[in-house]
Design a protein around this nucleic acid. Structure first.
Lengths: 194, 194
DNA sequence: CTCTAAACGGACGATATCGTCCGATTCATT
DNA sequence: AATGAATCGGACGATATCGTCCGTTTAGAG
């Protein structure tokens, strides 16, 4: 029996909740496995880690690229929520930038980003999320330029690259965290208009 | 017939020149192939690109890890020559740092560094080269601190990470070069003592 | 509770990569 | 030019991974 969705389109059925859960677990397990064993980690490993069969992996993601693209999309969408939160409660653009980048660093184990060695986003949705994120960053930079706290020549690509790079899964441990913080602070200090 | 080497040790024979050439070509081809297809690129591909047989690859590097470690060692040694050159003819420590990092970025296609996704150096020689490089960087930072041009809290790991990260094989093209330059200049600007 | 479409999972044949082994080749020496 | 040790290269058996296929299980509508 047909089920009418909110947007007025018609579907055979609502998505099964266990299927949704499996997709979530799959995504989480895939990111962890890739960080642990590299991009070429066997699908079987991902499946086992997620507690599903390989069949389920291939049903949801016909191709490895499809899976990777989905992980990238999720990562962009996560960063989107972070930049929104950081922008909301920050007195200056530089503070917002600091909050955003710090949050992203904290999320690094949950994300797969292009600079991690992951592929550039291909799918439409992944690209859309990336564009949206870039728009937000641009707004932040414009605000900083208006305030006079960020040099005008700074571009979106700079921040995007820095964020993606700082968020590399990298070595764990407190040393790295300190390096990360110092690098970020130094960069932010250099951002000021001379 | 024995051949007496310059250091006074005795060897059966001088190394064959074609073997030396093959090792060089192998290293170059391996770096290029890895940047193109990832760390898991088949040995056969590397061999073909280098114009040798797989047998030659395995004879020189019994293990994939052994090959990767060799590439890492070569990269560190290249950076070593760069930092020496940059240190020699630079009026200030910051200028030397700029020269060094700029050179490293220019060499990115010829290097395989840990942050590229490559493994941390394991072999004795690779580690030694890395330590030597760190010593040089420390000297540079000390000089900067003495001059008053670099904050004292900056550490070797910061510069090492920045260099290795900027030198990622990344996207080609002028846009990236500009991003790279701006990031570096912004960081260097932030380095100044406040 | 019944029923059905959707989802599951893992065995399996096809394919790709590994790393060894050895006959052929080539360089350095005399 | 002759010699022989070092080097070469790629065929080959072993192993690992891929991606499909289908019998079984399960969520959810009625």
């Amino acid at each position: 029996m047909d089920v009418v969705s909110g947007e007025g389109t018609t579907r055979r059925r609502a998505p099964r909740t266990d299927a949704v859960q499996n997709r979530e677990r799959l995504a989480r397990a895939a990111v962890a496995a890739i960080h642990r064993e590299g991009l070429a980690v066997p699908m079987a490993t991902i499946a086992k880690d997620a507690g599903v069969g390989v069949g389920t992996v291939y049903r949801n993601h016909p191709t490895r690229d499809d899976l990777l693209d989905d992980l990238t999309r999720r990562s962009f969408e996560l960063m989107l929520t972070r930049i929104e939160a950081a922008t909301d409660d920050a007195p200056t653009a530089v503070d917002a930038l600091r909050g955003f980048l710090t949050a992203v660093v904290g999320d690094r184990d949950a994300m797969l980003l292009p600079s991690t060695g992951g592929p550039a986003p291909r799918g439409r949705e992944a690209r859309a999320a990336q564009r949206e994120l870039h728009t937000r960053i641009r707004a932040l930079l414009d605000r900083g330029a208006a305030e006079g706290s960020i040099r005008r020549e700074v571009e979106v690509a700079d921040v995007a690259w820095l964020g993606a790079t700082l968020a590399q899964p990298g070595r764990p441990g407190p040393t790295w965290d300190r390096v990360c913080r110092r690098l970020l602070e130094t960069y932010l200090a250099g951002l000021a208009t001379p």
